[in-house]
Nucleic acid binder design. Structure first.
Lengths: 167, 167
DNA sequence: CTTGGAATGTCAACAAGGCTGACGTATCTT
DNA sequence: AAGATACGTCAGCCTTGTTGACATTCCAAG
């Protein structure tokens, strides 16, 4: 076949609309699986996915401020506040006034909060682990690579900022 | 190398909790990017992500029944019905009584519906394409492999069933 | 032919979790 | 002293999910 010089024959077949559509559908179905296990645990309680996200990132960055959490989660402060308020009221999250800047609130998980966070992330990690194991290390590297390329620039910045901190 | 037969030293480092956590966060941020462009388009209208999903799968499988769509989307018929009703009322989707089984409704996109579906999927595919291009074909294969391993069995069945049909 | 079950549609009520806008307070910064 | 920042909160709205109840229409089995 008379192909253009730059990209020949088979080389770009992975960029066909059909391949892209399959990728889109894979994201859709996989994301359902991704959230299914935590959702099941949360379903029994008065909490939802929003609470899970808050717990995750507070666990991830203990002492984070409300504003920081806001920009990571990408929601309004009113939305986050509703979630945070219930977590604080129920004793899962502690909010401490900043020492340097007293306007800030620094967020930490309590023992109770840590316990729930662990239950949720264990469930999610179990699925992730078996998917990783089934796919193998090369596939996992590709998986991460594509996901990172799919993020908006500012999301990627948030993600990178979290990336290599101690857990 | 003196490796145990099954798995050894370095071999399983991609299965550490830290690696799994990074994968979880990558899914979270990437999914936001994944939906951002269609969401932006939909934001201007009276439609949301649920409408996008319905349009996508009706486009994908023209003539599909309500029940079939229900099981693909994984929502209740009441939820889907609300979305479908507005799409039908607004003339984006046509609902035809089944010829063999007249209880069934077969769903098709109208020209207007096709136009919106195309606008949405073009936006989503553009992002997907640039992510794919940036990551390369090997990474893409890994990406798909991990996502497929992450699905629930019944979701994977739905996905596989769609997989190789003509567009 | 009647009856049971399947597929669909619809009404009502409710909840989670997004959003905007407005306002208040405490605290920094200039 | 004035303005900006961080946070909380009230009120109201939207989308999208849920359950429960009920009607209709049709197929298929007895």
């Amino acid at each position: 076949m008379a192909e253009p010089a730059t990209n020949s024959g088979q080389a770009l077949l992975f960029l066909t609309d059909e391949q892209l559509r399959k990728g889109i559908e894979a994201m859709f179905f996989a994301y359902r699986g991704f959230t299914a296990d935590p959702d099941r645990i949360l379903g029994d309680m008065a909490y939802g996915r929003a609470h899970h996200r808050a717990l995750h990132f507070i666990h991830r960055s203990p002492g984070t401020t409300v504003n920081n959490l806001l920009s990571i989660l990408g929601v309004t402060k009113q939305s986050l506040n509703r979630v945070l308020r219930s977590l604080i009221t129920d004793g899962l999250v502690a909010s401490r006034v900043g020492r340097q800047d007293k306007r800030e609130r620094h967020l930490h998980l309590t023992d109770k909060g840590s316990a729930l966070e662990r239950a949720l992330s264990d469930a999610q990690r179990d699925r992730m682990r078996s998917a990783y194991r089934a796919a193998g290390p090369v596939a996992v590297a590709g998986f991460r690579h594509v996901l990172e390329a799919m993020m908006d620039d500012d999301m990627r910045r948030q993600y990178e900022a979290l990336k290599d901190r101690p857990a």
